[in-house]
């Protein structure tokens, strides 16, 4: 069976580009703090969501709505409304992280398929099976900290479908547990839907040296000709004593396209591409590439040559934890 390509869309145009490029499934979110890509100019209002889902369905693709931040105390109704609206817009599933919201969705919208977001950091079979028993979840998006044998071990012990990231931005932390951004800006991806919110980011180009500041702190300087990273603390380059370096992680992107046959053998159902903040050009290129790769894997053919390095952060890529040499 062909593995499912789950593709990001930050705008209706990106959704259409993904469908046309051959995505089996598209994930997207509403234009508010209920989704973890809450950036200016991105996401869908209710009408756009309804129309986008209708367009995808007409062409045989599915749409998953990410409502994957953690509801703020006293404001749970915003997140509850998002789940209800996703269902009435015709979503094929919602992607949720918060246990309370999963419980609400299971009780109030039992016919709406539920997936566990990567933000829940569900990294072992016991936890995943608990989500299945308690909230009837059908799929889990695994955190980007697992090796291929670990993913195979999870699949051997659960009936829940697994979805894994194969391309795009890479977090150094277990998802849903990182508050680095909030130390510098007061806002975190988990609560506000934005890591390094754009209104706290400032760039300055002086004689070709690009300085990036986050919340007033300089977190990176790129020399002339050196590639620029995203302005996140985890990819920052810091100096201490007489040493300078990327304290947490080098600015690289995940690219696991060559591991697709192994992930298929490990029992993975769906391959997820990161990047709802990216353009329709990115979406179309990445989807075409991965669609060709999964079709080749299904036919037992060699993986096509990769074409996506230039789309990667730092213009570099890594297989990340899938080929883990560290613990």
């Amino acid at each position: 069976m062909v593995m499912e390509i789950v593709c990001p869309a930050g705008t209706p145009a990106a959704l259409r580009a993904a469908v046309k490029a051959g995505a089996h499934t598209i994930y997207c979110g509403f234009a508010d703090e209920t989704n973890a890509r809450n950036f200016p100019g991105l996401n869908f209002d209710r009408t756009e969501m309804r129309e986008g889902i209708a367009f995808a369905h007409f062409h045989g693709a599915k749409v998953l709505v990410a409502i994957n931040t953690f509801p703020r105390a006293g404001d749970e109704a915003i997140w509850h409304r998002a789940v209800g609206d996703a269902e009435s817009c015709g979503a094929d599933a919602v992607i949720l992280a918060d246990i309370g919201l999963l419980d609400h969705a299971a009780r109030s919208h039992p016919g709406l398929r539920r997936h566990v977001s990567v933000q829940a950091a569900a990294a072992n079979a016991d936890m995943i099976n608990l989500y299945a028993v308690e909230f009837g979840i059908r799929r889990v998006v695994l955190p980007r900290v697992l090796s291929v044998p670990e993913i195979a071990a999870i699949n051997a012990e659960t009936e829940v479908e697994t979805e894994v990231f194969v391309f795009g931005g890479l977090c150094v932390m277990a998802e849903g547990r990182c508050s680095l951004s909030s130390y510098a800006t007061g806002q975190s991806p988990n609560m506000n839907g934005a890591c390094s919110p754009a209104e706290h980011v400032e760039y300055n180009d002086q004689a070709g040296v690009l300085s990036a500041r986050l919340g007033g702190f300089t977190i990176h300087r790129a020399a002339p000709g050196e590639s620029a990273p995203y302005p996140t603390l985890c990819k920052g380059c810091f100096s201490a004593g007489d040493k300078s370096g990327h304290l947490f992680e080098d600015p690289v992107s995940l690219n696991a396209e060559h591991l697709i046959p192994q992930l298929q053998k490990a029992g993975v159902t769906a391959l997820k591409i990161e990047g709802r903040q990216r353009s329709r050009s990115y979406v179309a290129q990445v989807v075409r590439n991965f669609r060709a790769a999964v079709d080749a894997a299904d036919a037992g053919l060699p993986m096509p040559e990769g074409m996506m390095a230039q789309l990667s952060e730092g213009q570099s890529s890594t297989a990340g934890a899938y080929r883990k040499t560290w613990r």
């Binding site: 705008t11 100019g41 919110p197 760039y203 180009d205 000709g225 590639s227 353009s279 230039q310 213009q315």
Partner: peptide
């Protein structure tokens, strides 16, 4: 892709990053 041009330094953004991002995303859509 705007991010790819940013990574390669072919594109420079200065000033209000949120406004620039909103314009880029609006134009892309």
């Amino acid at each position: 892709d705007g991010d790819a041009l940013f990574f390669s330094r072919d594109l420079v953004i200065e000033g209000d990053t949120a406004a620039a991002l909103a314009l880029r995303n609006a134009v892309d859509d």
